[in-house]
């Protein structure tokens, strides 16, 4: 211990203190602050670059998932549309069929009606014609019958016979 104190040189201590503190402040100003700042900036830069890369990756994945979803949705929609179209088509066909049938029925009934009335009028016509014809025939027959006196008398006689019988 005594040797230590004896060896202690105040001059060296003084210079060491002075020079070291001077060196400390010079280095702080001209070296450590810029160096530490540069290192920090670089680290921050790397960190943010990594983060943005990670974000881009995530975004990419999201986009892909979105795409997938969209495709899925489109597919479902398309299928729904096809189904609907098919239904519409079938409905249209059945409707058309229905309508055509009712139309046809109506036409048939109309035709039947027309036929019926035609028939009736034809029958009436025929009746009339038959009546006319019968009258004509009767007229002619009567005329022929009545052209000869004997015959007329005979007829009256016959008729009277008939009526007396009755």
């Amino acid at each position: 211990m005594e040797k230590l104190i004896n060896d202690f040189s105040f001059g060296l201590f003084f210079w060491q203190m002075l020079l070291f503190v001077l060196l400390l402040f010079l280095l702080k100003k001209f070296a450590w602050q810029p160096i530490l700042k540069a290192l920090n900036d670089r680290e921050e830069g790397i960190k943010s670059a990594l983060e943005s890369a990670e974000n881009a990756k995530l975004e990419m994945e999201n986009l892909q998932a979105d795409n997938h979803k969209l495709i899925q949705e489109a597919r479902i929609e398309r299928e729904a549309m096809i189904k609907e179209a098919r239904e519409i088509k079938e409905k249209m066909i059945s409707d058309a069929r229905e309508e055509a049938k009712s139309e046809a029925d109506k036409m048939i009934s109309n035709a039947q009606d027309a036929i019926e009335s035609e028939k009736k009028s034809a029958i009436t016509d025929i009746k009339n014609q038959v009546a006319n014809l019968s009258i004509d025939i009767a007229e002619k027959v009567v005329k022929g019958e009545l052209s000869d006196k004997g015959k007329q008398l005979k007829l009256v006689e016959d008729m009277l016979n008939d009526s007396t019988l009755n």
């Binding site: 210079w15 060196l23 001209f30 070296a31 450590w32 160096i35 540069a38």
Partner: peptide
């Protein structure tokens, strides 16, 4: 003291150069 001065100068040159 001379070595302290030399070391100080060397350190200053090295680290200021690095900065």
């Amino acid at each position: 003291v001379l070595m302290i001065i030399i070391t100080g100068i060397l350190m200053f040159l090295a680290f200021a150069g690095m900065a």
